[in-house]
Nucleic acid binder design. Structure first.
Lengths: 193, 193
DNA sequence: CGCGGGTTTGATGATGCTCAAGCCCGGTGG
DNA sequence: CCACCGGGCTTGAGCATCATCAAACCCGCG
C-alpha cells in the first residue's frame, strides 16, 4: 500500500523508517471506481491524492461544453487542484477516475501536522511544487511555439507510460486538438516511419 | 521610491511603519535602460524585481528563432524566473526592458532574512505565488479553449493598462499569433463596433 | 528629407475544425 | 452462436482560422 509512497519520498529526501511510518499515519487510503468523481467543479479541493494504482484526470469545461484536460495522474503521481487546496477557493476543475484506482489522501490539517512532525516533508512538497511550476511553464511555452504534431511527439517522449493507457480522445483533449485531428496526425507519422 | 511597494504590501497584509522600513532595507533600487537585459537565457536568476516605473518582459526563443512572450511587468508587478530563482537552475527565459525602468531588486539571501525579520512577508510571497499559479493555469486553459480573437479580448479586459503601452507585435507574441493576424483581428473588431 | 520601426493590407497556403459517414471490436441479449 | 448495439477510432469533404511572403504605408526622428 505505502511502498510506492516510500520510494516516491526516498527519491527526494532521506527519512528514517520511523519518520516514514509517521508520515504514513497522516494519509487515508481510498479506492475509487472508474467514472467516479474525485472533485467536482465548484467544490473546494479538500485533499490531495497520491495515486498508487490506476489513473485519474483533471479537466475544465469551456463555454461550448468542450472538456480540456489539464493533467493525468497514474501511479507515483499526485493530483489535486493546488490552488483550491491552498486557498480554499472553489475549484474550476473537475477530477474524475479513468481506471479503477487506489489513492492515498492527505487533507490540509494532516499535511500541516505532518510537516511539523517530519520537517523533511516540507522539502518534498516544495520540490513537488517546483516540478509542477516547471511543467506548467513548459506547457505554456510549447503551446505557443509548437504545432499539434510536435506537441504530440513531445507528449509521447515525455509521458510514454501514459500513451499506452489513455484513449486517444483524452490525449487529443490534453493537446488542445480534436480526436479527428490526432487520428490524422498519427496516420501521417506512421506513413513517414 | 518605496511608496508603490508600500501600497503593494499594504494591499495584502498590515505592517507597522517600522516593519515596512525593515523590509525596504533588503531591497536594492536600480534603474534600467530600454533594451537592456535583466536576465539572459542560460543565466541563473539571482534576484526578483519589483517594478516601480517602466516596463519589462520575459520571453523564450523557440527552435525557429521566434520569440514568445511569457509575461509583461509594469508598475506594481514583479518579474523574475521563479523557477531559476528558487532552484538555482539556469533560466530558459530572457528578461529585457521595454521602457526605461526603475526596479527594486531582492536576492535570495535578502529575501530569506526579510522573512525572518518580518514574518508577515512570508504571507505576501505566498499570496504572490498563488496569484502566479492562478494566472498560469488560466493561461493554459484559455490557450486550449479560446480563439485568437477571444484571447485578445480577454487580454484587453484583464490587462487594460498594458494595452496602451505595449506594441501590438509584443501583444501578438504573448497571444501566440503573428503581428499580421493581430492587425486583422483588430480591424474586424473595429468594423463590428 | 530619408531612414527605420511598427503596422496594415493583399494573396496564397497550411493547419486544424466541423459535419457526416463508415469502421472496428468488445459486450449483451435473444 | 450470432445479431445487434455502442464507443472509440478513422476517413472524407468542405470550411474557418491563422501563417507566410511580400509590399505598401505611416510616422517619429536624426
Amino acid at each position: 500500500m505505502f511502498n510506492l509512497l516510500k520510494k516516491h519520498i526516498a527519491a527526494r529526501v532521506s527519512l528514517t523508517d520511523e519518520e516514514f511510518e509517521t508520515c504514513c499515519s497522516y494519509f487515508v487510503p481510498k479506492n475509487l471506481k472508474k467514472h467516479q468523481f474525485f472533485l467536482m467543479e465548484g467544490e473546494v479541493c479538500k485533499q490531495i491524492a497520491f495515486v498508487t494504482k490506476g489513473c485519474l484526470r483533471a479537466y475544465s469545461v469551456d463555454a461550448r461544453g468542450v472538456e480540456h484536460v489539464l493533467q493525468f495522474a497514474i501511479e507515483d503521481w499526485w493530483i489535486s487542484d493546488p490552488l483550491s487546496f491552498l486557498t480554499g477557493a472553489p475549484s474550476t476543475y473537475t477530477i474524475d477516475v479513468l481506471e479503477d484506482s487506489s489513492v492515498l489522501l492527505l487533507d490540509k490539517p494532516a499535511r500541516e501536522e505532518m510537516m511539523i512532525a517530519v520537517p523533511m516533508m516540507e522539502r518534498v512538497f516544495r520540490l513537488l511544487q517546483e516540478a509542477h511550476l516547471v511543467a506548467t511553464h513548459r506547457r505554456i511555452t510549447e503551446s505557443l511555439s509548437l504545432s499539434a504534431e510536435e506537441r504530440y511527439t513531445r507528449f509521447l517522449e515525455t509521458y510514454p507510460k501514459l500513451t499506452e493507457r489513455i484513449s486517444q480522445g483524452q490525449i487529443a483533449s490534453y493537446l488542445g486538438i480534436t480526436p479527428q485531428s490526432l487520428s490524422r496526425i498519427r496516420k501521417d507519422r506512421s506513413r513517414k516511419a
